[in-house]
Design a protein around this nucleic acid. Structure first.
Lengths: 233, 233
DNA sequence: TGTGACGTATAAGTCTGACTTTTTGTTCGC
DNA sequence: GCGAACAAAAAGTCAGACTTATACGTCACA
């Protein structure tokens, strides 16, 4: 599941990245490339590549004569899928999940409205199929099956919006949904009301009813906010 | 203005990155590190670091025995500020500006609602100050002054939302606003209605009226959508 | 003729060591 | 006390040798 490939470079990154995002090194901490290279038992070349990547994520800043400085959270590229994954795997996972859920609540209703306008016949069919899959797995502790179709459903909506910025959040939403199922709440069968909403949403998109699609999605995401005890906006 | 530092590495990146995002190399094209190093007259070490960064942005994929493959747009990290800047500087700037404006229309209303709940007294003051600045520059072709306060206004809103994902879009929104003023529309004084909306929004936030703040922001962003002839959702 | 195993060429991956450049902090002279 | 020259430290750059994975072509065998 880890995006980073096989190389030595990737393995070092998958260790150092999470350490930084977890806050092991407070902002302003200074690391030295040579030390890191020694610590991970890799050559300076490899270590330099790792630092470059971390720098492109704005997690660190490399300056001559001073070293590799850890930047404050405010600077991080928090939309980088890798950074999101690292943070979700770390200690402030709950906080992260809240941020992302609020983001969802802003994006998805608008995306659904656009999907109602732009979805292809094939996408409408996929949507219906996913909704049916959710219904079929909504009872009897079939959480994994439910999650699978739920993730697919939202991914189709985001793709069908025709906006690439929305489409690219498919992975993030999937991550949030998976996190909800696996770690936090949802030990019992999903809320029947939520299932119904998804079925109705598939319907609204198929019928090109943008306003209804948006409204239904707003209800869905409001449910997600309430689950995390976030005040409904 | 270019984020990338002074190093050799940065200069190569600032050439190759825009070329790729501009579509000079169609998806599936294969580049070779050695060739690139020769073309830019840098060592392989430097070239490898550049490729690693491009890889972390999912613009390319490097595989043994085949080379550096350009990935399809769908794979790109379109939220990476660097990628956004490169694309805005390139040929599909209009398309990009549309995507980002739609994103704004989804994010900002929710952010404004949250800002009304969470804004500090200082942030409320800044907001009022920005709104006044917009008013003061709304007549007599003082577009630069207007833009300055407009960008600051929206940045404060996004920061005051208390959600880091929203806050990080400040640069993007600023870029969109600047693009609108400099390249596209707005050759005359800004719409007085828009100015009024900003003043009212500052008011709503100060009065902790979340619903009104959200509604006003929706009107603002709908105006932005209409300017680009995007169907109001 | 199709299919699978094998070998080879290729391009990325890694390591090492030497050298350059920038920048910080100190020291010295005024 | 202050500015300028100096020295040290760390990143930046380079060149070259070596390693490793893998796509592709070859050949034997069915």
């Amino acid at each position: 599941m880890s995006t980073t490939g096989r190389g030595l470079h990737g393995r070092v990154l998958d260790t150092l990245g999470p350490e930084i995002t977890a806050g092991d090194y407070p902002p302003g901490s200074v690391l030295r490339t040579d030390e890191l290279a020694h610590r991970f038992d890799v050559s300076r070349s490899v270590m330099r590549e790792v630092v470059r990547v971390l720098e492109s994520m704005h997690l660190v800043e490399s300056r001559r004569r001073v070293g590799v400085t850890v930047l404050p959270t405010r600077e991080w590229n928090v939309y980088d899928p890798q950074v999101i994954r690292w943070r979700l795997a770390g200690a402030d996972r709950p906080r992260q999940l809240r941020s992302l859920t609020v983001l969802r609540s802003a994006i998805e209703p608008v995306a659904a409205g656009l999907a109602a306008r732009h979805a292809t016949a094939e996408q409408c069919a996929e949507l219906t199929e996913c909704a049916l899959g959710m219904v079929a797995n909504s009872r009897g502790h079939r959480l994994e099956g439910y999650l699978f179709h739920d993730m697919a459903f939202h991914r189709v909506i985001l793709n069908a919006s025709g906006n690439e910025m929305f489409a690219r959040l498919g992975d993030v939403v999937a991550e949030v949904l998976a996190g909800r199922t696996h770690h936090d709440v949802m030990f019992e069968d999903p809320d029947p009301a939520a299932v119904t909403l998804h079925v109705q949403l598939a319907e609204a998109v198929r019928e090109r009813d943008a306003a209804r699609a948006e409204k239904l999605t707003r209800e869905i995401t409001e449910g997600a906010l309430q689950e995390l005890d976030i005040l409904a906006p």
